[in-house]
Design a protein around this nucleic acid. Sequence first.
DNA 1: TTTCCACCGGAACTTTAGGTAA
DNA 2: TTACCTAAAGTTCCGGTGGAAA
Length: 342
Amino acid sequence: MIRDARVLRAGFVPREVEHRDAEVNHLSSVLEPITNGEPADTAIVTGPSGAGKTCISQFVTERLREEVLDVEATYVNCWRNYTRFRTLYQILDDLGATIDIHRQSTPHDELVDRLQQHDGPRTVVILDEVDQLEDPSVIYDLHSLPQFAIICIANKEEELFSRVDDRLVSRLRSSEHVRMDKYHDEQLYDILSARAKWGLDEDVIIDDQLYRIADAAAGDARLAIGILRTAAGKADRENHERITDDILLDAAEDARAQIKQKSLDSLTPHQRVVYDVVREHGPVGPSEIHERYSEDVDDPRTKRTIRTYLSKMEQYNLLEAEGTSRDREYSLVDSAAASPMQ
DNA sequence: TTTCCACCGGAACTTTAGGTAA
DNA sequence: TTACCTAAAGTTCCGGTGGAAA
């Protein structure tokens, strides 16, 4: 049933990108100077989740590396590498320059120095989910190094700009912006159809089912491909010749649950207790959350720390807050209710 | 309209934990 | 072993905001 599982994986970069010609050309033109050995401008790629931001950034970078011999590329997910240290470390690690760097005893400045001294080929640095950085000054660090071309990927440019200081805002505003919208259902259908063509045997899934996945994913290509992957995997395990409607229904729920579980796995034990309090008692106010949380753990953190946890979980789209002041209440985000499979 | 107070989040400070070097 | 260094996590303090009550 599954002809090529790679095609259905989340991080797969296709040979051809569907419906993003303008954005691909725009980003390619920003990186163009690199082909002549000159420094390139910083690019900012913005758009909603699943709009193909990471995909086109990697696609353009890959294509550049095919054209030019002396170009390196490195990818950093700033959600997982959210501190300045981890981001810089990840880049140095990709360049093979971290042998004698240690997490606790190497100062930040030494990592920047190390990057400055990097005398290898010009390097494209893709900073994905850059709005998740705790300390965005790392963008400034990289911006000042001409041998690195930076692609900053974020959901909303306002959120990115609101978190950086003035000197960086003025620099980023003069950067090239590539703005991307959600995919339409027809476009999502084309993407799914191409993935199904290369990844699955013939007649495993019918057009109507692909349209329903596109509809349920509501413009999010990552979710759409996730549903297709989950459905194909389940049908394969259960020895079906084709994907049935029941399998598709389950896959839509599973794909959403997997995305949520990924966020839950990144929580610390204390954060998890806070999440569970909201899950069991929400909608619930901050005072009650702290009260119940304090009953459930041996060494409770302060209210201020809990506020930081809550705000982090809001960013992860695990919780949502209503009200602005004394009427503030937190509850779980019900992602499944957003766009159920028909 | 004023006052009270829960809540938010920035800034500065402290504690913790892991690593180095003598 | 110990003194010292650093990043990360947590705490304290405090000004701003906005809903509720006087």
